[in-house]
Amino acid sequence: MFDTMTFTKIAASFCGALLILLLGKWAAEELYHSGGHGEQSYVIDTGAEEADEEAIEVAFADVYASADAEAGVRLFRQCSACHKAEAGENGVGPYLHGVVGREVGSTDYASYSGALSEVAEVWTPENLNGFLENPRGWAPGTSMGYNGLKDIEDRANLIAYLDSLDD
Rank of each mutant, 00 (worst) to 15 (best):
A28L: 15
T46V: 09
K25V: 10
A51C: 01
G36E: 01
L31Y: 11
W26M: 04
V43K: 09
K25E: 06
A27V: 08
E29K: 07
G36Q: 03
L22D: 00
A48S: 11
H37C: 01
K25D: 01
Q40M: 08
A51K: 04
E29A: 10
E29W: 13
G47K: 04
S34I: 05
S34R: 15
I44C: 03
E49Q: 13
L23W: 02
E29S: 11
T46A: 09
E49H: 11
A27E: 07
W26K: 07
D45P: 01
S41M: 15
S41D: 12
V43H: 09
E49T: 12
A28S: 08
H33T: 03
K25P: 00
G24Y: 06
L31M: 11
S41I: 14
E49D: 13
L31C: 04
S41R: 11
A28E: 10
Y42E: 04
K25F: 08
Y42N: 06
S34L: 11
E39F: 05
Q40S: 06
K25T: 12
D45L: 12
E30G: 08
E39Y: 10
G35N: 13
G36M: 04
A48G: 04
H33L: 06
A28D: 12
A51F: 03
E30P: 00
S41K: 15
G35P: 00
T46P: 00
A48Q: 12
G47C: 01
G38L: 02
G35C: 06
Q40F: 07
L22N: 03
V43Q: 09
A28M: 12
I44H: 11
A27L: 09
G47Q: 01
Y42W: 09
E49K: 14
E50N: 03
L31F: 13
A48E: 08
Q40W: 03
W26P: 00
E39G: 13
L23T: 13
E50T: 05
S41F: 07
D45H: 15
I44A: 07
L23D: 01
L23A: 15
L23I: 09
L23F: 08
E49A: 15
A51Q: 03
E49N: 14
W26D: 01
L31I: 08
E49W: 10
L31N: 07
E49C: 04
I44Y: 08
Y42V: 15
E49V: 08
E39C: 06
E39I: 13
A28H: 07
E49S: 10
V43F: 10
G38Q: 03
G24L: 06
L22F: 05
Y32K: 04
L23H: 04
L23G: 05
Y32P: 00
H33D: 01
Y42F: 08
Q40N: 11
G24S: 14
E49P: 00
G35A: 14
G24C: 10
I44T: 14
E39K: 14
L23S: 11
T46Q: 07
T46I: 10
G36D: 02
E39V: 08
L23V: 13
E50P: 00
G24R: 05
Q40H: 11
S34A: 08
G35M: 10
W26I: 02
H37G: 01
Y42I: 12
V43Y: 07
G38N: 02
V43L: 11
G24E: 02
Y32R: 06
T46R: 14
